[in-house]
């Protein structure tokens, strides 16, 4: 089982570290058809053997399901329904009633309903931010790795500076300049994450571009965009998916931190981070608001992290096996 690395792909760029990796794609383009079926069947077998993987898939699935069908779950109160006489009611087991299983917040709104409602915004913001970072980062990484030369120099130095200048700090300036909003949070998270994708893509492409199938394609006259799309990108998919899941966990945490500071999701909407911000003044006598909202963040992020951990270990194993199988023929 390979350990989690949080947001430090510099130590553990998934599947990139092994210099022998490109050797597995000897000669033929392993892109679309032949690889896919084997991978999916393998994926399932590998998942059934991994407890952490099963837990990750289960929690992430539940998280995604809650985000999608949240408003249609029966017997759940309206998350926006305020009721001042019912404010700060304790959860069941601490003197509360089943009318509000997890108690109520400072405006008498049902905590469980608000937690369910918050899942959607957390997942949406996280996916949007990581999607943006992956799009920009992969594109730049492809260009830097494939063309090399000055394009690589420029892109790599910008990535290095971005690494030294965390986007979160620049994000604070954006918040002051444009006012707090969800869009700013998405932009800030994407800005502090794109270079992770650039670095991984660049180093993978760097080794791939000298392989036979790319050279063959070049010689038969394929243009650079076609080579990138048809021959390089399919080889990056598994690494990129692993990286996206890893970054998604970090993005959900960042969103919650920004919303907690009051710079992210704004009041009529609800978010787990914002719930902690709103409940913090009451922690001395109503611990449940902050506790349950934080627990929702922690469990969701844990699920995504376990999923990413398992994906990393799956990729490692698949690659190791492939290298062993290919070696005699080389």
């Amino acid at each position: 089982m390979s350990p989690p690395t949080g947001k430090t792909p510099a130590v553990n760029p998934p599947t990139v570290t092994d210099p022998a990796a490109p050797a597995t794609h000897s000669g033929l383009d392993p892109g679309a058809d032949s690889g896919e079926a084997r991978t999916l069947a393998d994926l399932r077998r590998h998942l059934l053997k991994s407890k952490a993987g099963m837990a990750g898939v289960a929690i992430t699935g539940l998280f995604a399901l809650t985000a999608i069908v949240g408003p249609w779950i029966p017997f759940i109160a309206d998350p926006a329904q305020q009721s001042l006489p019912d404010r700060l009611k304790p959860p069941v087991g601490w003197g509360g009633t089943w009318a509000h299983p997890l108690g109520t917040d400072q405006l008498g709104r049902d905590l469980l309903a608000r937690l369910i409602d918050g899942a959607r915004i957390s997942l949406l913001v996280g996916l949007a931010a990581v999607g943006l970072a992956a799009l920009i980062g992969t594109l730049l990484g492809l260009v830097a790795g494939y063309f090399g030369g000055w394009a690589d120099t420029v892109i790599s130095s910008v990535a290095d500076v971005q690494m030294a200048f965390p986007g979160v700090l620049a994000g604070l300036i954006f918040v002051l300049a444009f006012g707090p909003s969800v869009w700013i949070v998405i932009a800030v998270i994407a800005m502090s994450g794109w270079m992770v994708f650039t670095r991984v893509t660049r180093s993978l492409v760097f080794t791939l571009r000298t392989s036979l199938f790319v050279e063959a394609s070049e010689m038969s006259g394929a243009g650079s965009p076609r080579i990138m799309r048809r021959h390089l990108l399919p080889n990056l998919v598994s690494s990129l998916i692993t990286l996206i899941v890893l970054e998604l966990a970090a993005a959900i945490l960042s969103e919650s931190a920004f919303s907690f500071l009051g710079f992210g999701v704004q009041p009529p909407q609800s978010s787990w981070g914002l719930m902690i911000e709103q409940g913090r003044d009451y922690i001395t006598h109503a611990w449940w608001v902050v506790t349950f909202a934080g627990m929702a963040i922690a469990v969701a992020v844990l699920g995504v992290n376990l999923l990413s951990l398992w994906l990393q270990s799956f990729n490692d194993v698949a690659e190791r096996e492939q290298i062993i199988l290919d070696r005699p023929g080389m």
Partner: peptide, 26 residues
């Protein structure tokens, strides 16, 4: 140890801060 690591990597630090306040200060 992996379980410990995953739990604390996943929990938002500001939430851990409030839990510590609730338990040890309040």
């Amino acid at each position: 140890v992996l379980g410990f690591s995953m739990a604390f990597i996943s929990a938002p630090p500001f939430w851990i801060g409030y839990l510590l306040i609730i338990v040890f200060a309040v």
